[in-house]
């Protein structure tokens, strides 16, 4: 990951009210550091896309302030647009144009000099493995190719920060993993990324920090590791061969925070590390006891999400996917 320099996004009490009374975003404040991949998680209608729209100048700000790349979103929107790349949820590449023509069009609209444009397009087509398909019309592309082209279109003018709204929604696991690789590669090259996602493993794998937003309010904001620690950390479940009470011994091990016993079963909480496991196993076996069952549970962002929003992410994934497919179908069938 790139060395962090300063804030590329500064949002202060950002709010969006849709008349008459719908408060889509309600006073959110956060900073995104330069070089960081920042994830925005939340249930449907939580305010994720509205926040992206405000930060990318596509929606007006009702109150509060936001700076992107050092420019005020409200008063210096043209400067903000020059600094950002946007990869929307929809696949907006033009079906009737070739892949390379879509890139050239976006390059022209971002005023990339003609002399640089061809080389830049070639570089992006190579990066996203689209060289061979570049002269084909986009209507012949698969979903994964369209998504990759969409990412390339967001990068054609070398933005300082890339906004990605659900970058892997609707993609199969294999293509999704490939997109993650691209995002990691881009971040290593120095690009800051602000992304929303419904896939918690995606946020866990890509984001240095994540914010969970619900009903327009940021509920938690931290690194995925620290968010998981808040739930009490890792849990080791043991079953031993006889009923001797080992609770006292287990509590003496430094990284054990809590022990509960139910007959032969022990539930041991290990907030920070798994280093204690060998010590626990050694201690039990040296007492001549046998471990008959052992399992180790790591809390996931799914559990954090459930605790914060009261819903599981799986329900959200289903709804998001369904609504995305419907939107795409409506769009394509009308064309």
């Amino acid at each position: 990951m790139r060395r962090l320099m300063g804030s590329i996004i500064e949002a202060d009490k950002l709010s969006k009210l849709y008349p008459p009374k719908t408060k889509a975003v309600d006073g959110v404040s956060f900073n995104v550091e330069e070089g960081e991949v920042f994830g925005f998680l939340g249930p449907n209608g939580a305010g994720k896309t509205t926040t992206i729209k405000m930060l990318t100048t596509l929606a007006s700000i009702t109150s509060g302030t936001a700076k992107v790349a050092g420019f005020d979103v409200k008063h210096e929107s043209a400067r903000v647009r020059e600094s950002i790349g946007v990869v929307p949820q929809e696949l907006t590449a033009d079906d009737e144009l070739k892949g390379v023509e879509n890139l050239m069009l976006l390059g022209k609209l971002h005023h990339v000099p003609q002399s640089e444009m061809k080389e830049k397009a070639r570089e992006l087509l190579r990066l996203f493995d689209l060289e061979e398909a570049s002269e084909r019309r986009v209507r012949t592309y698969s979903g994964g190719m369209r998504r990759r082209l969409q990412m390339a279109m967001g990068l054609v003018h070398s933005p300082k920060i890339l906004f990605m709204d659900e970058p892997t929604l609707g993609l199969d696991i294999q293509t999704r993993t490939k997109v993650w690789e691209y995002i990691k590669k881009l971040n290593v090259s120095g690009l800051s990324v602000f992304m929303t996602t419904h896939y918690l493993e995606e946020a866990d794998s890509l984001c240095r920090r994540v914010a969970i937003i619900d009903h327009g309010v940021i509920k938690v904001l931290d690194t995925p590791a620290r968010l998981k620690e808040r739930l009490g950390g890792n849990v080791l479940i043991l079953e031993v061969s006889n009923g001797v009470d080992l609770s006292e011994f287990l509590r003496t091990i430094p990284t054990v925070s809590d022990v509960s016993r139910d007959g032969h079963m022990y539930k041991i909480k290990l907030p920070k590390t798994e280093d204690a496991i060998p010590a626990i196993v050694d201690g039990i076996t040296s007492r001549g006891l046998k471990i008959t069952q052992i399992s180790f549970l790591k809390p996931t962002l799914d559990e954090v999400f459930l605790e914060v929003t009261g819903r599981t992410m799986r329900e959200e994934e289903g709804e998001a996917q369904e609504s995305w497919v419907q939107n795409v179908n409506i769009g394509r069938s009308s064309s």
Binding site: T57, R81, V86, E90, T92, L106
Partner: peptide, 8 residues
């Protein structure tokens, strides 16, 4: 929206 987010 894609072109509105561009500096045109």
């Amino acid at each position: 929206n894609t072109i509105l987010a561009a500096p045109i």
